[in-house]
Structure formats: structure tokens, C-alpha cells
Design a protein around this nucleic acid. Structure first.
Lengths: 146, 146
DNA sequence: TGACAAATGCAACTAAGTTGCGTTAGTATG
DNA sequence: CATACTAACGCAACTTAGTTGCATTTGTCA
């Protein structure tokens, strides 16, 4: 796993200043196993005693996306979720309790799809997103006992 | 492709009434090759001279999702997109012009992922969502000429 | 250390989606 | 066909996520 210092260096190389808010955002994302919403990021920044305005967080994430350090993960229809691109993986989302787990996938089939898009449709693929939605073990148990 | 009549029958079997709004929503989704936002659905309902309130459309889609006839497709961070579950496929989304195309994928790798989720994490998978984001041929050309 | 632009906070705003409630209209039954 | 029951509906008011403009602060580089 990449260390924070490495990411900070990347920020500088991308021409971004090393501000407290920016560093803290990157640290929060780095420390999380799962994608985070802006609300979650704000809350965790608060715990680190880094008080930041939500506008700043939105703008920050936009910048980090632009330089490719952060990705948008569509887990819900109402909120954006973000994760470090270096953390890129696919997710299992429980539609009952909203918990998110990672799942390993053989990406060869996806690469084949990307290749086809390039060949047939002249599409230049930047990224992909694959999510599974279902009901987790706990929630299945809870449902049975009703 | 399923015909509207078949879908209407499914609605009745699910215990839903056959209202004008409901039928028209299903017809609109059936006629579209790509997923639609609520705004797009409202507009197309208007063209069919079926005047429906947005609240109704939201509630309708929620119901159709519940009976499994409609799926949510996360193409953008700001709006929900919907398609008939029967139309299920994967998409190429241009991040510049927002156009959406379909792309064929060998789903075997995805099934393998679903299997792993079931075995290892006791997850019951309901559906998956796979989207590719990139730049379409047109937008690549436009960028070059700047 | 000073200058300059990037970054920030704040308040006001927009857009997507939701809720409560009174009314309308499918549908099953007689 | 008439009636009654309730799902479905429309409307207006509301909530929440995300955005914008602008004045102020703060990194960075010379």
C-alpha cells in the first residue's frame, strides 16, 4: 500500500499545494478500506481536528479526481462516494444495511470489454466501475427471524 | 424483446393496477435503448400526451424496481438513471458529452465474482452494475482541434 | 521577506428527490 | 351496471447533496 508521503509527493508533482485540508483528505481516504461519502470524510476530518468546510472537501475531491488520485464509486443514487484510485477494487453493497465489502474479480473479462470498446467504438476508456448489490449474511438472518 | 403486453401482465401478477401513468412509464422505458433519467422520462411522457407529476414517476420507478422490472443504473453522480431489467447490459459513458452506448461483455467473469461473494461472504447477489467511463470518438476529435 | 496565485470559508443558491395529505380512479364484488 | 375499497395520483412544501461568487487566508517561490 502506498504511504501518505508518496501521495503528498504526487500532489506536488501535479502542481498542487500541500495544504492541511488536502493532506488530511488524502490521509482519510488512505486509511479507509471502503469508499467514503463527503459526509463521512467531513466527519473523519473532524475527528482528526481538521475543521474544513464542505465546499473545500467537494473542491478538493474534484481536484484529486482530475489528477487521477481519486475515483468516484457509484454505490448509491443519492451521494457520491470516493476512494483512492490506488485502492481500486470492486464492491459488494448490501441493499438493506448499506455495508460495503470488497470482492476480488478476474479483470481479464473487463479488459476484453475495454478492448472491444476501443476497437469497435473508438472509445478511450479512462476507468470502469463494477459493483454487486445484494443482501449480506447478517441481513439475511435478520429477515428470516421476522 | 419483450412486448408491452407481456410486461402489463407481469404488473397485474405483481398486484399492481394498470394505470395510464404506469403503462406509459413502462412503454417509455421499453422504447429506449439507453437508461433514462426521471427528467427524460417526464419529457417523453409529455410527448405521448400523458401528463404525469414527477412525484408519481419517482414512486412508479420505486415500485417497478421493487418487483424487479426496472433497474437503477449509476451513470452519473447527480441523477438516477433507470432501465428495464430485461434490457440489462453494460455501458460506455462519455465523460465529456455524456452520451451512453451499450457494450457487450463476457459475463462469465462476473458470475465467478458473484459465486465467490456467495461462498466467501454469504452474500446473496441481486444484481450487478458495470460501467465504463471514457471519451468517445467525437469528443477525442473535438479535443484535438483545440 | 514579500508578492502572487491557489486554496479556503461563508452564505446564498440550484437541482434532485421526498413527504403528507386530500382527491381520483382502477378493480373486485354483488 | 353500481358500489365500495384502496392503490395511485397531484400538489405544495420540504430536505438534502452539491454548486457558485466573492472576500479573505495561506502556501510557495523568487
Amino acid at each position: 500500500m502506498k504511504k501518505a508521503e508518496t501521495l503528498f509527493l504526487e500532489l506536488k508533482q501535479a502542481g498542487l499545494r500541500l495544504t492541511k485540508a488536502r493532506q488530511a483528505c488524502v490521509e482519510v481516504l488512505l486509511a479507509s478500506r471502503t469508499p467514503l461519502s463527503v459526509a463521512q470524510i467531513l466527519e473523519r476530518l473532524g475527528r482528526k481536528e481538521v475543521l474544513v468546510n464542505k465546499t473545500t472537501v467537494y473542491r478538493e475531491l474534484e481536484k484529486l479526481k482530475k489528477i487521477g488520485m481519486v475515483e468516484n464509486v457509484p454505490l448509491s443514487d443519492r451521494q457520491q462516494y470516493f476512494e483512492l484510485a490506488a485502492h481500486h477494487h470492486h464492491h459488494l453493497v448490501c441493499v438493506r444495511c448499506q455495508t460495503v465489502e470488497e470482492v476480488a474479480i478476474d479483470e481479464r473479462a473487463l479488459l476484453q470489454g475495454e478492448e472491444r470498446a476501443k476497437q469497435e467504438k473508438q472509445f478511450m476508456i479512462i476507468r470502469h466501475s463494477l459493483e454487486f448489490f445484494g443482501v449480506c449474511g447478517n441481513c439475511q438472518m435478520a429477515e428470516k427471524s421476522c
